[in-house]
């Protein structure tokens, strides 16, 4: 297994545990969803799984604890894109292309490699035509795509996406889903969302449910549709 999560628990000071005793494993290149309603700790869990929170329990990548890694190794291993993509842009680049190159540049890669990764990530997100655009002049959906491109340019081995597709138009969403299925490197993905979304078809095979601090599953997509779900969890395409 690539990622091992064992007995992970977290609570904000003075509050009851948001989640407790979460355990699951992720194979290299596997794509998994974690579905939870609002207020169930989805975003906090995303940060916890990325190793950005002090949680109880273990979080290991191929046997190595995430919290014992150097920052550089951590950044090479895991990238996260959250619900506030404008906060994820460095603001350091004059253009979208420079913004996307920011991560690879900081890895100290050869220039040709930085250029290739940047071009590739822009292509994955349908952003090539906007490469010279000032990032402050991107629309909401384009900003979300820019943040995703910045993460993919790092070629992480684990990508954590917290409601990644919400502002993407259908064309960009389908393009990204397609590229995630056939990346030139091996990357596991954890998608956190409020429910099953139609773009998950053929992309995500296993689903975990997080409700009232407890994890249920993993379930296959067929089982997900056949199982009585917590009231808040949503299956796209079903009547509102």
């Amino acid at each position: 297994m690539a990622l091992n999560v064992s007995d992970l628990s977290f609570s904000w000071p003075g509050k009851p545990p948001l989640f407790r005793g979460l355990s699951f494993a992720l194979a290299p290149g596997e794509r998994l969803s974690i579905l939870a309603g609002n207020g169930m700790g989805k975003t906090t869990l995303a940060r916890g799984l990325a190793g950005f929170l002090t949680t109880e329990g273990g979080l290991y990548w191929q046997g190595e604890a995430l919290n014992s890694m150097s920052r550089a190794d951590h950044a090479r291993l895991v990238q996260i894109v959250g619900q506030r993509p404008h906060l994820q842009l460095s603001g350091r680049g004059y253009s979208l292309r420079e913004e996307v190159a920011f991560g690879p540049e900081n890895l100290g890669l050869p220039v040709a490699e930085i250029r290739a990764r940047t071009a590739e990530a822009l292509h994955f997100l349908n952003l090539t035509h906007l490469a010279e655009r000032d990032c402050r002049r991107l629309s909401g959906g384009e900003t979300q795509r820019a943040a995703l491109a910045g993460a993919l340019a790092m070629r992480p081995r684990l990508l954590i996406l917290d409601e990644p597709m919400t502002d993407l138009d259908a064309e960009s969403r389908d393009a990204l889903a397609g590229h995630l299925r056939s990346l030139p490197w091996e990357m596991a993905v954890i998608f956190l969302d409020i429910g099953w979304q139609s773009w998950m078809a053929g992309l995500v095979d296993r689903h975990l449910l997080l409700d009232q601090g407890e994890m249920h599953g993993p379930l296959t997509t067929e089982a997900l549709f056949a199982t009585p779900l917590p009231e808040r969890i949503f299956l796209a395409g079903q009547p509102a």
Binding site: D167, I194, I233
Partner: peptide, 30 residues
């Protein structure tokens, strides 16, 4: 965006009720 099933239903009900009272509503959505 990002609303779970219960919250989404609340929003849909409210939009319908506002419209019934004569409020005009423009909703950008994907």
């Amino acid at each position: 965006r990002g609303l779970d099933r219960i919250n989404r239903q609340k929003v849909i009900r409210l939009i319908r009720a506002e419209a019934a009272q004569g409020t005009t509503i423009l909703a950008v959505t994907h």
